[in-house]
Amino acid sequence: MSDSMTTRTVTVAGHGGDEVPAYLAQPEGAGPRGGVVVIHHMPGYDRATKEIVRRFAEMGYDAICPNLHWREAPGAAPDDASATVRARGGVPDDRLVGDVGGATAYLRGLPTSNGKVGVIGYCSGGRQSVLAACSLDLDAAVDCYGAFVTGTPPADFPLLVTSLVDRLPDLRAPLLGLFGNDDAHPSPDEVDELEKLVQENGKTYEFHRYDDAGHAFFAVDRPAYRVAAANDGWERIAEFYGTHLGN
């Protein structure tokens, strides 16, 4: 397999028909191949997230990341955009679903597509990955340490985040969950609750939990990075997507 790829910014039809910029990376070659929608973390549509998009292209997938903060801050630096969105309460769930749906449709419309699309998100994007898989026709979902999939945010919580417990019966894609045992959100107890709920609802899932790892252990540019957990996590993702997004 070649590791050559092409990257560019494209526009997807997001929530409400809005034109949303998205970063696209495509491997060389005609396909057919699966696609991956990357949901960026709360710090935004940043360099680290685009590196993840390119990594999925290197792994053989058409990969795309919509800029979820574009509406509030078109053209702004990722950190400024993130600060603006945070001050306004975060990304609304319905808008997230619409934007991920648009990115999914874009991938399926590519001439290289085999029709299969997975989603992955980190931190706040982990919860949003589960939300997308409860709302959209996806083939695989990966939740990397998303908080408040289970567990209840405080009553005075300032952001528009709610538990997804009531949505889990609608989960319609196999779920891979990757969690650090030193994390507080989601805590190991909250991961236990999520596992219990997906079991009770008869969903296909696979969870991996890592010692000596907390939140954001995949983040190579942050002190939370944990090499062993991240390396194993990437292997689990490769196997999972290979199973569910392959030809």
Partner: peptide
Amino acid sequence: MCTYTTIA
């Protein structure tokens, strides 16, 4: 963890 907590 992401605390999400935000005060304006």
